[in-house]
């Protein structure tokens, strides 16, 4: 297993894209914190702004870091197929499950490190602007930030699974961008149409929508007149997102074991 980890670490660290994707992710999340600081520096720091500054806008619906890290996740297996290196890789490490496990471990570790680094940088920005970060280690902010790290991690795992499932980069990219941004938004929007109210109970099962509840500070109030979505709690919703990732990963893993390289 150590050999496989060493392989995967060399693979990911000799890729230019790893550096610029991580760099872009950190840059954008830091940028959001700086922008918030510039815009709201004269207002008292409330929990809402603090959370958004720390997660780089993710709770606002723009999970930048998750997206950039998910591309690294897609590349983990997608690149091997896109550039055909899966064959030499398997002549170096023929135990397929061990290879996938090593790839998973490296991607998960990288995601966690980068996510915490991003939060640390943003905390620094907050301190520079406001000189304080009240309630950072207490509920509900602490819970929302843990939720944010989990959300990013599951998002990346979905990307990893899609790259392995589709054995390529473009199709996985299309799915991971279309699904939350377009498909889920459309279903959510259509659920407001009275004639389509049978969509209402579906909404709470939409994986990315459910996953986003992980990083919410307070249950988001819907505008008056909205249908009753009867959303699950933070952890149940997170569980639905995790289950979605697990299904994709399992399918991809089983197929990887069965298919020709």
């Amino acid at each position: 297993m150590l050999d496989a980890l060493r392989f995967e670490w060399t693979r990911i660290s000799t890729l230019r894209s790893t550096y610029w994707l991580t760099g872009m992710g950190l840059l954008v999340t830091t940028g959001v914190a700086v922008l918030l600081g510039v815009a709201a520096r004269n207002e008292p720091l409330d929990a809402e702004i603090l959370t958004m500054a720390l997660n780089g806008g993710a709770s606002f619906g723009l999970p930048f870091l998750a997206v950039f890290m998910a591309i690294i996740g897609i590349f983990a297996c997608g690149h091997e197929y896109r550039h055909g290196t899966i064959q030499p890789t398997l002549t170096s490490l023929p135990q397929r499950s061990r290879l996938i496990l090593a790839k998973l471990i490296v991607v998960v570790a990288a995601t966690l490190v980068v996510t915490f680094a991003s939060m640390a940088i943003n905390t620094l920005v907050v301190y520079i602007v406001w000189g304080e970060a009240p309630g950072l280690f207490e509920d509900p902010i602490a819970t929302a930030l843990i939720g944010y790290a989990l959300y990013t991690l599951i998002y990346v795992l979905v990307g990893f699974g899609l790259g392995l499932l589709f054995r390529g980069v473009p199709s996985a990219l299309v799915v991971i961008f279309l699904m939350p941004l377009i498909i889920e938004s459309i279903i959510f929007g259509l659920a407001f149409v009275p004639a389509l109210d049978w969509l209402v109970p579906v909404v709470k099962f939409l994986p990315f929508t459910a996953g986003a509840r992980l990083m919410e500070l307070n249950p988001a109030p819907f505008p008056p007149g909205s249908p009753d979505f009867d959303l699950f709690s933070r952890w149940t919703s997170g569980g639905i997102f995790a289950l979605f990732a697990a299904l994709i990963l399992t399918a991809a893993w089983i197929l990887f074991k069965k298919r020709d390289a």
């Binding site: 392989f7 060399t10 693979r11 000799t14 890729l15 230019r16 894209s17 690149h79 550039h83 055909g84 290196t85 899966i86 064959q87 030499p88 890789t89 002549t91 170096s92």
Partner: peptide, 15 residues
Amino acid sequence: PFHPTRSARNHLRML
């Protein structure tokens, strides 16, 4: 097969 942005030496180092 090789990754287009990885040097030959790094390709072999990886394997």
